[in-house]
Structure formats: structure tokens, C-alpha cells
Amino acid sequence: MCIAVPTKLIKVDGNTGWVNIGGCELRVRLDLVDAPGVGEYVLVHAGFAIHKIDEDQAEAALRLLKGKA
């Protein structure tokens, strides 16, 4: 139940953002994260963004993994 989906913010208006999940535009609250901008990826859980995904970190982790495996 602690599922959180990474999605891209397509619009931001104050405390509210809009994301596109599976073709549906959904409203998410941004109370729990520090002002994310349009185009950033957030983890969405129960109608709230709970984290801003660190894309550089993800890329770096993948590079490291590919070297290791």
C-alpha cells in the first residue's frame, strides 16, 4: 500500500501540481516537498507528492551498477 509512482509534473500552481498518470491528468498536493518545478519528477502517494526524484543520482547509480555487474 506504500506504493508511490514516479511522475513528471506538467503544471504547478502554488500548493497544487498536475501530473499525467497513464493518460489521466491528476491533481497532486505539493505540501510535503520543497517547491518542485514543471518538468521535475516526483513520487506520488495518496494524492501527495512525497519526494522529488534525483535524476542525476539515478543516472550515476545505473552507471555504477553497469560497471559492477
Binding site: 500500500m1 506504500c2 498536493r29 505540501d31 510535503l32 502517494h45 495518496a46 494524492g47 501527495f48 512525497i50
Partner: peptide, 16 residues
């Protein structure tokens, strides 16, 4: 119901 993932969303809803 839920764990630490969900509890802050409930807290934010009560504030709302």
C-alpha cells in the same frame, strides 16, 4: 491505515 509513507498525507489533510 498505513505506515510512515501515508501518515504525513493524513496530517496534511487534517491541516487542510
Amino acid at each position: 491505515i498505513g505506515f510512515e509513507t501515508t501518515a504525513p498525507t493524513i496530517a496534511a489533510t487534517i491541516l487542510a
